[in-house]
Simulated scan of single mutants.
Amino acid sequence: MRRERAALIVSRAADTPANAAVAVAVAAALLARRRGRELALLALGLGGAGALAGALKRLVGGERPVARPPGPARGAAFPSAHASGWAAHAAALAILAPPRLRVPVAATGAALVGVVAASRVVLRAHAVRDVVAGAALGAGWVWLVARRLGLPAPPQGRSSVESPNSCHR
C-alpha cells in the first residue's frame, strides 16, 4: 500500500501542470537571454512530443491494465504521455545544459523519467511497453529536433565535424 501511495504522489506531481511549469521557467530563462534556437528546441521539442503522443494514442489506442487506475489516467494507454513529456523535458534540458553539465543533467533526467514511468506502472495506469514507448518517443523527438536546429553547439574551439574523442597527432 505504501508503494502505491508513493506512486500516486509521484504521478500526480508529474502531471501536466508540473510539465508546464518547468517549460515556462526554462522558456523565460531562454527568452531573457535571447536564445532563439534553444527556445525553438523547447517549443518544437516539447510541443511536438506531446502532439505525437496524443496522435499515437488516437491511432494505436491500447487498454489500460485496469479499468479505473488510481490517479491521473485518461484515454488510451499507448504511449504514456507522462513518460513522453518528462523524457522530452529531460532530453531538452540535457541538450541545453553547458557541456560540462550535460552528463549529470542527462543522468538526473533519466532517473526522473524512470521514477515517473515506474509510478505509472505501479498504479496500473500503463503497461511497461507504454512507458518505454513514451520515453523513447519524447527523448527521440527532442533529439531529432535538436539535430535539425544544430544543437547542441560544439564546445568552443572545436569544429562541428570534430569528435570530442578525436585523436590529433
Score class of each variant (00 low, 15 high):
A51C: 04
A21V: 09
L52W: 04
L46V: 09
V66L: 10
G71E: 00
A29M: 08
V22S: 10
P17M: 04
G47E: 07
G62S: 12
L59F: 12
L46I: 11
F78P: 04
P17I: 06
G50S: 04
V22A: 13
G45N: 06
L52E: 00
L59Q: 10
A28Y: 11
G47M: 09
R33I: 08
G45T: 09
G61Q: 08
A25Y: 03
V24A: 14
A40M: 12
G47P: 01
A18Y: 08
P69M: 14
A55V: 07
R35I: 07
L31H: 11
L44R: 05
A32L: 15
G54M: 03
G47D: 04
G48S: 04
R35S: 10
L59M: 12
L30P: 09
V22G: 07
A40C: 09
R37C: 07
V26T: 14
P65R: 02
E63N: 02
L30N: 10
G62A: 13
A73P: 00
P70H: 09
A32W: 15
G61L: 11
A77P: 01
R74S: 15
L46E: 01
A51R: 05
L44C: 06
V26Q: 06
V22C: 09
G61V: 13
R35C: 07
V66G: 01
R33Q: 15
P72V: 14
G71N: 00
G75N: 10
R74E: 15
G54K: 03
A43F: 12
G75L: 13
G62Y: 05
P65I: 00
V22I: 15
L46S: 03
P72C: 05
P17E: 02
R68F: 12
N19T: 13
L30D: 13
A23Y: 05
L44W: 05
R58D: 08
G48V: 03
K57L: 02
L30H: 10
A49E: 00
G62H: 09
L56Y: 03
P69R: 14
K57N: 02
L31K: 13
A23T: 10
L56A: 12
A23Q: 12
A28H: 09
